Simulated assay, not measured.
Amino acid sequence: MTQRMGFCIGLKPEHIAEYKRLHAAVWPDILRQISASHIRNYTIFLREPENILFGYWEYEGEDFASDMAAMAADPMTQKWWDICMPCQAPLASRGPDEWWARLEEVFHLD
């Protein structure tokens, strides 16, 4: 069963160009890990001048927690996050175990 998931986070203004550059050429190992984690249709949008990132993906696996743990344990993903995370500004209202704040789906049309 496909689960649609949306997330948001702030983006530090001084890192916008770097973040765009990074995501224009995502490392192949990262793309492989995302796919291996059963994530499809992954998209990140940026809203300026508020500098809010909105991420959307569809999860098609059977054990989300396990797939996310495998992604977090991947050495290349850790290196990617080490570069990307300093660019981001987590929302104060995010959950205690969240970096990107998860959004509630309130409407969908296929």
Rank of each mutant, 00 (worst) to 15 (best):
I9E: 03
G10P: 03
G10R: 02
K12V: 05
H15N: 12
H15D: 09
A17W: 04
A17R: 08
K20D: 09
K20L: 15
L22A: 12
L22Q: 12
A24V: 01
A25H: 13
P28M: 00
D29W: 01
I30M: 01
R32W: 02
Q33K: 07
Q33I: 00
A36N: 08
I39Q: 15
Y42H: 12
T43W: 06
F45N: 11
F45D: 08
P49T: 01
E50F: 08
N51Y: 15
G55N: 03
W57H: 15
E62C: 11
D63A: 15
D63I: 08
F64H: 14
A65P: 07
S66W: 11
A69G: 04
A69C: 01
A70K: 14
A70C: 09
A73T: 01
D74L: 00
D74W: 01
P75D: 01
M76P: 03
Q78R: 10
W81R: 05
W81A: 04
D82H: 09
D82V: 03
I83A: 11
M85I: 08
P86L: 07
A89R: 15
A89M: 13
A92M: 04
A92E: 13
R94E: 04
P96W: 03
A101P: 04
L103K: 01
E104A: 13
F107Q: 06
D110T: 11
D110V: 09
